[in-house]
């Protein structure tokens, strides 16, 4: 949507030409640079976003690779050591189970969590070391059906 592009012929005749191209090329260079930085950082930072089935299928190649997992939370498995601030829980999808360890403050809505998005790395011991976690509640800010 560059607007520098289209002055009419009679105008360009009266003003010195060549000026336009400087701007056009300069603008393209800058946009190109921004696009390059965007795409290259995207490639270095892009990580797979998987469910447990996909994670399990590719687990050999994903060991110690950054990955984001989204899976249902097994609420009965939640353990929080509030002295050392270590949170342990299991993500569970049918017969697949993924133990997750997260070091940090437990999110306020964790106990109501339906599913968890965890970003981190899968260790060789099969435990997922999460660096960030995001809880998905049934509907976080919109509560469920009111009780009768």
């Amino acid at each position: 949507m560059s607007s520098m592009a289209a002055p009419t012929a009679e105008r360009t005749a009266s003003v010195k030409t060549g000026g336009r191209w400087k701007f056009f090329i300069g603008g393209l260079l800058i946009l190109g640079a921004i696009a390059y930085v965007t795409l290259s950082s995207f490639q270095t930072n892009a990580i797979y976003y998987l469910n447990l089935k996909e994670l399990n299928a590719q687990r050999g190649s994903l060991i110690n690779q950054p990955v984001r997992v989204n899976a249902p939370l097994d609420r009965s498995s939640i353990q929080f050591d509030d002295k050392t601030l270590v949170l342990k829980f299991n993500l569970k999808d049918e017969n697949l189970l993924l133990p997750v360890v997260y070091k940090g403050v437990k999110p306020d809505t964790f106990e109501q969590g339906e599913s968890v998005v965890a970003e981190g790395k899968l260790g060789t011991d099969g435990v997922f070391q999460a660096s960030t976690i995001l809880v998905k509640c049934p509907s976080k800010y919109e509560s469920g059906t009111p009780a009768k």
């Binding site: 930085v37 950082s41 995207f42 930072n45 892009a46 990580i47 797979y48 976003y49 984001r68």
Partner: peptide, 13 residues
């Protein structure tokens, strides 16, 4: 395939 980026991407760009 679902691919995603986090804060490091936005900070870097």
């Amino acid at each position: 395939k679902k691919v995603t980026v986090g804060a490091p991407f936005f900070n870097q760009v």
